[in-house]
Nucleic acid binder design. Structure first.
Length: 458
RNA sequence: GUGGUUGUAGCUCAGCUGGUUAGAGCGCUGGAUUGUGGUUCCAGAGGUCGCCGGUUCGAACCCGGUCUUCCACCCCA
């Protein structure tokens, strides 16, 4: 009995037209990565489990796909641990590898391992799939692509400026207008927590603040209270809810609010430089907005935090994110290397572009020319012609059998082929081939010996 | 991980309080049209109603489980 085929939850097959569209996005992203001086690298699909564990927080650990050890792994499990039924202590006994969860941590590992072969500052880009054992939703898959650009070995804020420009360049090229790049700084968040006297609750504080968009001021205050942040501190945070105006004005208000915090002031100073410089340079299609409620991002970020929101009206989570991490390589034994990078969420950008119908129609064109097959002799002549068309860069083929002309034309139509070439008995005798323009329906003949006129007419 | 939601032809979906051979549109195949597609007309093929089990004389429909889809949490691209 044939079993009904299926693929695992949260994974997808891609049809030719989908691959064409994905490659269109990847091509543009890659082009700009290289224009900004980033070099490509690749890392394995799976890493040692302990390379990944503990780098993404407790929630992240849960979402890492663990790979079961090979062989008789069950025999090696400690009886006591087995009896405890505690998954966490079992991991180390039955799994020592895991699918990569993002591209940043493997990159940090890569930098440490290859530090003597790299020229610092090192700028790399990487476009590869990652896996998360998440529960799928719209725009959320268990296997998806990230397109990352990071630079390590430079603590210059010019890098942050360039990364925002990079975002802008890519989205402009994709014609994806109305994208908002949200900017914040971990130091500002730390400073706020410090100023209001909730320094020990930094994580709970920022997680609550991050929900501002969703649950509003009242909800945020409530969530903070539930998490055990003193009412007095929550009241002190009041000015944050009232931040208004341009980026410069928001920074002015923040600067006052954080004047007593060294870290906070530093964070304000950094954002002032970044936004000021970008103001001078200008952005083509993106809006840069300082957003103190932006707290997301993995917990290794230490400076700037970036998140990219899809154009208004499109319901989609962030389509990109990034930030600065001062000590990610430190975990692997290489101190004092600062890194900063951004990520493009290919799959979500795809969905947004699809919804806004931003893909060029020509992407569907997988074939430029189809030659009708009239029989062995005619097909041979067609094959000779096709060879010349191919070397001229035209995607061409001869229909493989002398099926009904009607059927062959229908095939051409379904494949969106713009030109159909006919070489039948008559054409062969005259030494011609007839080109039919499928859109206009007009036909024109050219000499078989010299197809250049046709090629040049395209 | 928690709560909900969805599944019927290749696709989009009908299918009444359970009742006999499960329907439509689009698509597909063939013909009208022996060297011309997209329009039109005619004909045809295609379904273990996600899967497993239960209730019932009888289940696409009711119940349980499971897988999948999507959604809200959680978290994130």
């Amino acid at each position: 009995m044939a079993q009904k085929p299926s693929i695992p939850k949260g994974t997808r097959d891609f049809l030719p037209s989908e691959v064409a569209r994905r490659n269109y996005i990847i091509g543009i992203v890659q082009k700009h990565f290289e224009a900004y001086g980033y070099q490509p690298i690749e890392t394995p699909s799976f890493e040692n489990l302990d390379t990944l564990m503990g780098k993404y927080g407790e929630e992240g650990d849960r979402l890492i796909f663990k790979i079961l050890n090979s062989g008789e792994f069950a025999e090696k499990v400690d009886d006591a641990i087995y009896q405890e039924k505690d998954s966490k202590s079992l991991y180390s006994q039955i799994s020592e590898k895991a699918l990569r969860y993002d591209l940043t941590v493997p990159f940090a590992r890569f930098v440490v391992m290859h530090q003597n072969e790299l020229q610092f500052p090192f700028k790399r880009y990487q476009i590869q799939p990652v896996w998360r054992a998440d529960r799928p939703q719209k725009g959320r898959f268990r296997e998806f692509y990230q397109c990352d650009a990071d630079v390590v070995g430079s603590d210059s804020l010019l890098q942050e400026v360039e990364l925002v420009q990079l975002y802008d360049a890519v989205f402009t090229d994709l014609k994806l207008e109305g994208v908002t790049i949200k900017l914040n700084n971990r130091k500002i968040l730390a400073g706020i927590a410090e100023v209001i006297g909730a320094g020990d609750k930094l994580v709970d504080f920022t997680v609550a603040l991050d929900k501002m968009d969703k649950i509003g001021e009242e909800g945020v205050r409530n969530e903070m209270w539930v998490k055990g942040i003193p009412q007095e501190s929550i009241d002190k945070a009041q000015p944050l809810f009232a931040l208004k105006g341009s980026n410069a004005e928001v920074l002015e208000q923040l600067s006052d609010f954080l004047s007593s915090s060294e870290a906070g002031s530093k964070g304000v100073e950094e954002l002032r430089y970044i936004t000021g410089t970008l103001e001078e340079l200008g952005l083509d299609c993106c809006t840069l907005r300082i957003d103190v409620t932006l707290a997301r991002g993995l917990n290794y970020y230490t400076g700037a935090i970036l998140e990219v929101a899809a154009p208004e009206g499109v319901s989609m989570g962030s389509i990109g994110g990034g930030g600065r991490y001062d000590d990610l390589t430190g975990i692997f034994g290489l101190k004092d290397i600062s890194g900063v990078g951004v990520s493009f969420g290919l799959d979500r950008i795809y969905l947004v572009m699809e919804e806004l119908q931003l893909f060029p129609e020509t992407l569907d064109r997988a074939l430029d020319v189809l030659c009708i097959n009239f029989g062995d002799k005619e097909a041979l002549a067609a094959t000779k012609l096709v060879r010349r068309l191919r070397s001229a860069g035209l995607k061409s083929e001869v229909y493989p059998s002398s099926a009904k002309i009607q059927k062959q034309f229908k095939y051409a139509d379904n494949r969106n082929v713009p030109f159909v070439i006919l070489i039948g008995e008559q054409e062969l005798k005259d030494g011609n081939f007839v080109v039919k323009n499928m859109e206009s329906g007009t036909q024109q003949s050219y000499p078989l010996q010299n197809p250049d006129d046709f090629i040049n007419s395209l």
